[in-house]
Simulated scan of single mutants.
Amino acid sequence: MTNGFVVRSLDEIRFWSRIMKEHSLFLKLGFRCEDTQLINEANYFFSLFERIENQAHDFSTEADPEQISNFNMKVHRAASLIWAFKRKVLGLILQCQLPGGNNFPLLVDHVSREAAYFRNRLEELNQGRLEPLPDAIIDENVFFLRIMADHAKFIGHLLDPSERKLVEQAREFSHDFDQLLFQAKDLESMRPQSQTVPLLDQFLDQNRVSVKSLRDFKKTARELIEACRIKSIIHPLLADHVFREAERFLQIIDLFERSLTKSSPK
């Protein structure tokens, strides 16, 4: 194990533990007041991932790789637990056992997919089996394009219907990212033949343009919500949450582009 393993592990945990913590809050806010058991479980996961987030920031990038490997295993267990909680909540909603709650089924599925992604990334890091670059480019984009499409749908549904222009913009982003996701799935089904440098480079360029536009839209929405200048039921933290995930996707695209450039023949 190398310093790169430590840096990558801490980066993943610092980012995703905060995301998991905030998911706990958002789910809690969507439960009914009588759902005390679910509220208590959400509070437990909020505290658990807050501790994990703080611990991750206490580690130095010069930390012992074996120590980080053990930490990854601990966080992996926590990610598995919150994934199971989210799937349980989804089941209750789909079986109409939480009538009147405010958690969309797609939102609960969305946050469970992110928990599964986090858990799987920790497994890959500890086992030293990160995907080859061409596979990683396609798989990461398939995952994040769906996340971005979901975000646009959530924003459109949580804005007040009278915010017609913003609602329409959110719908347009939803359509755009659905199309990008379909294209990514086509590229996925055509591999390995589709994994040429020109095709992957164009794939990343096209996605970056749309993610930047969505990121900027989210940034504007966040600022308007924080200033109480638009009508919505979007929590200010949720607005910042989805903005940070778009920023994360852009960072990943940039990293892939640099790696692709290095790997291509001169």
Rank of each mutant, 00 (worst) to 15 (best):
N102A: 09
L81S: 09
S232K: 10
A246G: 12
D11A: 13
P198F: 10
V211S: 10
S194K: 07
V209N: 01
F49Q: 10
R51V: 11
A56Q: 01
F144D: 07
N54D: 04
Q202E: 08
F26L: 10
R87H: 08
F5M: 09
N43Q: 14
M1I: 11
T196I: 05
L237I: 14
C96D: 14
H175L: 11
F71G: 02
T2A: 05
H76D: 06
D139T: 14
D139E: 15
D254I: 14
V89D: 01
D135V: 09
G30D: 00
E168V: 08
E257D: 11
F243G: 02
K218N: 12
E168C: 02
L214V: 04
D240C: 11
D150M: 08
D160A: 11
N120V: 07
P105M: 13
L98C: 05
R8H: 09
F177N: 00
T61D: 13
R222M: 14
A170G: 05
N3G: 13
D216A: 01
G100M: 09
T196E: 00
K88G: 07
L187N: 00
Q202S: 06
K212T: 01
G101N: 08
F46L: 14
F118C: 07
L180I: 02
T261D: 06
S9F: 04
